[in-house]
């Protein structure tokens, strides 16, 4: 996917003025609310027209000074914050709305396989008013995918959902987009969602593109300013239960986590602030996890030092103040112990 956007649009108290080209298939648009993200979505989809500028997708001009391609010809799907299902149609007919209108030679997604991937099999004949919030959003995602879009725009698709549902939907989204090879632009104000859904991120604020970086670089640069620090995301599976604590295989050793789950696969977050670095082995310690790590690199962010640790094949980011870094003599290749309490991990889904 190659998307080139160079547009201007003025509103009463706000101006959107952006220029960027993205080629990655999993791109994030990150910014606070009111930064112009949703306007950008409308312009790319053709639901609104810029005052001036050019929009091109895979070499085809969608908008320029001479004209604008109507939204139904752009083959760009949207998933909104709310599901916006057609209330007069049941689930099956909602799903088929875009599918039927897609020319046969452009159809890339088979109805039955999508229904299976999104787990919609037993909902097909149901009226959309009798679906739960998560089910509605799954149908909305399925409906957009079945129109076989060249590009899928997701405008805060998870913000109306609670945490448990959010991560469940993320896994559906990732699986479906990967299975059917649909490139997407994922719009959100949540850095964690960005981390889970995208590779490259456009940082948008005040109607301007502030930067285009990898999602990892964005997360690191935000570490010092964020009250929660850098969030390490860990996908763990197949735990053993020992005295109410779950032990997960990780990085050649085991992580002990209270509040784990017996699910075969679970997602956890761990703040960089909850990792204590120790120079020598302390003997006995109340923290249940004491990991021997190698320093792979350091970076500065907002007056803090981020330390990238390698533990077996896994990576963790810990956050310390510069003085601590000096005292611990943190340099690339130095060996340290990382102490983490079993309760510091938070399960996401």
């Amino acid at each position: 996917m190659e998307l080139h956007v160079a547009v201007k649009k003025r509103f009463k108290a706000f101006e959107l003025d952006v220029e960027f080209t993205v080629t990655n298939d999993r791109v994030g648009v990150f910014g606070a609310s009111g930064s112009g993200k949703s306007t950008l979505v409308s312009l790319i989809a053709g639901l609104d027209s810029p005052d001036s500028g050019v929009i091109r997708l895979d070499g085809e001009t969608l908008h320029d000074g001479r004209g604008s391609m109507p939204p139904e010809q752009r083959r760009i799907g949207i998933i909104f914050q709310q599901s916006h299902l057609f209330p007069h149609l049941n689930v099956r007919h909602n799903l088929q709305y875009g599918y039927k209108r897609c020319a046969a030679e452009n159809r890339r997604i088979d109805f039955d396989s999508l229904v299976e991937v999104m787990g919609l099999g037993n909902l097909l004949e149901r009226g959309v008013n009798r679906l739960s919030g998560g089910e509605k959003q799954r149908v909305a995602i399925g409906r957009a995918l079945l129109s076989s879009p060249r590009l899928l725009l997701m405008d805060e698709p998870l913000s109306a959902l609670d945490d448990t549902l959010r991560f469940q939907i993320i896994s559906y989204l990732k699986t479906a987009c990967a299975t059917f090879g649909i490139p997407y632009l994922f719009i959100s104000h949540s850095l964690l969602e960005m981390r889970l859904m995208t590779d490259q991120v456009l940082d948008v604020s005040f109607g301007r593109v502030q930067g285009y970086t990898s999602v990892e670089a964005l997360a690191r640069s935000r570490m010092g300013h964020s009250p929660v620090g850098y969030i390490n995301v860990l996908t763990l599976g197949a735990p053993r239960r020992i005295n109410g604590i779950c032990a997960y295989a990780w990085g050649g050793t085991e992580l002990f986590i209270s509040g784990g789950s017996d699910q075969p696969k679970a997602l956890f977050e761990l703040s960089s602030k909850d990792i204590i670095l120790i120079g020598l082995h302390p003997g006995a310690i109340s923290a249940r996890n004491l990991l021997e790590c190698t320093v792979m690199g350091t970076f500065q962010a907002g007056g803090k030092v981020g330390v990238e640790l390698a533990c077996g094949s896994e990576r963790l980011i810990a956050e310390i103040v510069p003085e601590a870094a000096r005292e611990l003599e943190v340099t690339v290749g130095s060996r340290l112990f990382a102490a983490i309490k079993a309760s510091a991990f938070r399960r996401l889904g």
């Binding site: 053709g46 109507p70 939204p71 139904e72 949207i78 916006h84 129109s147």
Partner: peptide, 25 residues
């Protein structure tokens, strides 16, 4: 209005949207 927009991005022309979304609703 979002339903109308959703229909358009799903490939329905303006007239199609009128007949299949706006009119029934």
């Amino acid at each position: 209005q979002r339903l109308v927009q959703a229909a358009r991005t799903l490939g329905a022309s303006w007239f199609d949207t009128m007949l299949t979304v706006v009119a029934p609703l």
